[in-house]
Design a protein around this nucleic acid. Sequence first.
DNA 1: CCCGGGGAACCGAACGGTCGGTCGACGCGG
DNA 2: CCGCGTCGACCGACCGTTCGGTTCCCCGGG
Lengths: 217, 217
Amino acid sequence: MTAAPSEPPLPSGPSPRTRRARGAAGARRPVYDASSLLAVAVQEFNARGYDATSMEDLSRAAGITKSSFYHHVSGKEELLRAALSRALDGLFGILEERAAQQGTALERLRHIIFRQVEVLSSELPYVTLLLRVRGNTETERWALARRRAFDASIASLVAEAVADGEVRAGVEPSLAARLLSGTVNSIIEWYRPGRPGSGSLPGEVVRMVSEGIIPPA
Amino acid sequence: MTAAPSEPPLPSGPSPRTRRARGAAGARRPVYDASSLLAVAVQEFNARGYDATSMEDLSRAAGITKSSFYHHVSGKEELLRAALSRALDGLFGILEERAAQQGTALERLRHIIFRQVEVLSSELPYVTLLLRVRGNTETERWALARRRAFDASIASLVAEAVADGEVRAGVEPSLAARLLSGTVNSIIEWYRPGRPGSGSLPGEVVRMVSEGIIPPA
DNA sequence: CCCGGGGAACCGAACGGTCGGTCGACGCGG
DNA sequence: CCGCGTCGACCGACCGTTCGGTTCCCCGGG
């Protein structure tokens, strides 16, 4: 089920305002634009959880008062929506890459996993937030639906690889797909950028899920 | 199981006045004991998230008022503590089993993974709650610390297996341990009891992480 | 047999506090 | 002097928790 992405529910609010610093060159204070405030908010959301993070927490982390914070953003849920949208765009972008659409099912699958790890790393805070959504509001349910669609496209790819006999016999497609996604997504629990990875994380992950840990007999 | 087997959490009936008959044998049994209330609470916590679940949500799910609910439990965080404790006891119990302490490192590792999947399944709601705590309160930080200790013991076992040459060459121990735990823990995201698993889930998981999905060359 | 004390279960109402969000005013650079 | 960014004060709603009081059942004394 590769459902076409629909419009996110936008209850009320103007279009995202791209605020710029005062003068072109002479900005004198840390002026906050929408994206930098979003980055701050997402970091706080991930540290404490969305529901446990108050708007006052966010404004304090940004260095301004709550009222000033509201001058730049339209509301708490809108921040969440923007963050989830960014994560989902990154993930769905993988599926549209050339290498994700040509070659054998196994080749495409390996490429998608490789790229998914890369996106998880580069968009870590946003994807982290996405993977913790519970579905309490309409925005969260929208994100959950999109995320399920992404997982479903991977699952169908796994099923195709199994049908083509490209993977080990006895592998149950839906179980393998779930464990695959779970393994990849679990990276957000411990990966932190800037830490000296011994090698290429995406390559290591692809190899681990492909060959397991047992030495070839 | 300590829950009373006779009575599932009754839905919000219009007349909660149906007082349950005291035990004929004289054993006085309240309508709700602590453990059945805990089960209801944990289910709600998992559905909405701990912070997003109000005490009124819990009491409504239990079929009584908020005040009555407080007659049985001491507070919200105490419910959380009891649930997390149950999950952690289940996990640490695995490490004390005989098969987890004798044999080669790889044998012990495979047994622990097998049993961990079993515990995840049998104590699903409690382990689910455990794997979602963020560390906002002292109780949550205590649970996080205990959970890290469990993961650490698995990581050291993986390192031992690598040092003994029991696993594929080139496997980085700490990365493998993290992916291993991530894969196993991700089961809570989709496993639901009662669904007809085609085979033994623990066995399938052990095989998948051991051999991967690639057919032997 | 009846009666009444005691306690568990339960409830409505309210507490102090925090939440997301709003509003009017002020300082200041253009 | 105009408007943007900032701010303190404030709002209604809801939070977890407490309290006073009522109902129901068991049980011992007459």
